[in-house]
Amino acid sequence: MKNMDYYIRSEQSVYENIIRSRKDLLQKVIQMEKVDYQAIVIFATGSSSNAAFAAQLYMSDKLAIPVYVEEPSTAGNYMLHLNKNTLYIAISQGGHSYSTIHLVKEIERQGGIVFTLTSDLTSPIAKASTRAIDLGMGIEEMPYVTLGYSATILMLNLMALELALLQGKIPEAAYQSEIAELKKINAHLSQVIEKSAAWVDEHTQELMEAERVFFIGYGAAYGVAREGETKVTETIRITSFGKELEEYMHGPYIGLSERDYIIFLEPQGLLEDRAEKLKQFLQGHVKKIRTIYADAGGENADDLLLGMRTAELLTPLFMTIPIHLLSFEISKKKGINLEVSAFPEFDKITKSKI
Rank of each mutant, 00 (worst) to 15 (best):
I133K: 07
E211T: 11
T204M: 15
R212A: 10
A160V: 01
E162K: 01
Y175P: 12
L121I: 04
S150V: 02
A126W: 02
V213E: 07
A187V: 05
L121T: 00
V213D: 14
Y149K: 14
Y149N: 14
L182P: 12
L182F: 07
K127D: 03
N157F: 14
M142P: 06
V145P: 07
P124N: 11
A174Q: 09
L182I: 13
I185E: 09
L182D: 09
L158C: 11
E172K: 13
I133H: 05
A187L: 12
A174M: 10
A132D: 08
H203R: 06
A126F: 01
G148K: 10
A180M: 13
E181G: 13
A198D: 07
L154G: 10
A187T: 06
Y144Q: 14
L147G: 07
E181K: 10
E211A: 11
L156A: 02
E141D: 13
E172Q: 15
A160G: 01
P124W: 04
E141K: 15
A126P: 02
I216P: 13
E162I: 00
N157S: 03
A174F: 04
M142A: 06
I170T: 01
L156T: 03
A187W: 10
V145F: 13
T130P: 03
K127M: 01
I185V: 06
I125F: 06
F215D: 06
I170G: 08
A128I: 03
L154E: 01
L156V: 01
S123P: 03
L166E: 00
K127H: 01
V145Y: 15
E178Q: 14
L207P: 05
A164F: 01
T122I: 01
F214M: 15
T152I: 02
L156G: 00
A197I: 03
